[in-house]
């Protein structure tokens, strides 16, 4: 039984600290997937919390405990999809007006631009970047989630970086 599978089994038996460890390992990736849907950091963080609570409630439905991360990512994707479909009664304030001090507020503008650019990439390219920068074993996870070999993953990663660069250049040229 893999280490992740062991934690899932323990969490399913009611061991919340085991679930806490799974949260530590994968919360950042889930937030990034949620941000792809919300384009708003605070909303993405709130949505990610909901994703983990849903995952905890539905742990008994996960038959292959080794497949926890792909299953979790699917929950996050569906949560993002549902979030986009919901009518918004409240106007979502931009981060800089919300009174919360998000990381984006202290960032260089180009960082926010790059983050937004990544959102516009095709899903597989986005995921390659998310996995590389947020997962401790991106190659292993890429095999699980994207079905890619090590070389395939790094090729996709390079394509994603180049594509992001091209979008940024195009946006800069259209401003001029």
């Amino acid at each position: 039984m893999s280490d992740t599978a062991e934690l899932v089994v323990r969490a399913r038996d009611g061991d919340q600290s085991a679930f806490g460890l799974l949260y530590d390992r994968h919360a950042r990736l889930v937030r990034a997937i949620c941000y792809d849907a919300t384009a708003h950091l605070a909303s993405a963080e709130d949505l990610a919390q909901d994703v983990f609570l849903k995952a905890y409630q539905r742990l008994h439905q996960l038959r292959e405990t080794d497949r926890f991360l792909p299953w979790l990512c699917e929950i996050a994707r569906r949560a993002g999809h549902d979030w986009r479909r919901q009518p918004r009664r409240e106007v979502e304030l931009p981060d800089e007006w919300s009174g919360v001090e998000p990381a984006a507020r202290r960032e260089e503008p180009q960082i926010g631009e790059l983050r937004e650019t990544i959102r516009q990439l095709p899903e597989d390219e986005r995921m390659a970047l998310h996995l590389f920068y947020l997962e401790e074993q991106p190659v292993v996870v890429a095999r699980e989630l994207l079905g890619l070999s090590q070389s395939g993953f790094y090729k996709l990663l390079e394509r994603a970086r180049n594509h992001a660069g091209a979008i940024l250049r195009r946006n800069q040229e259209s401003i001029r």
Binding site: Y23, R28, Q49, P102, A103, E107, I111, L134
Partner: peptide, 22 residues
């Protein structure tokens, strides 16, 4: 470095959010 800065934002307040989730 820019890519790393982008992804650093997903780490903010992790400990507090972990506590809230638990």
């Amino acid at each position: 470095e820019m890519f790393r800065d982008v992804y650093a934002a997903f780490d903010r307040e992790h400990a507090a959010r972990r506590e809230a989730m638990l």
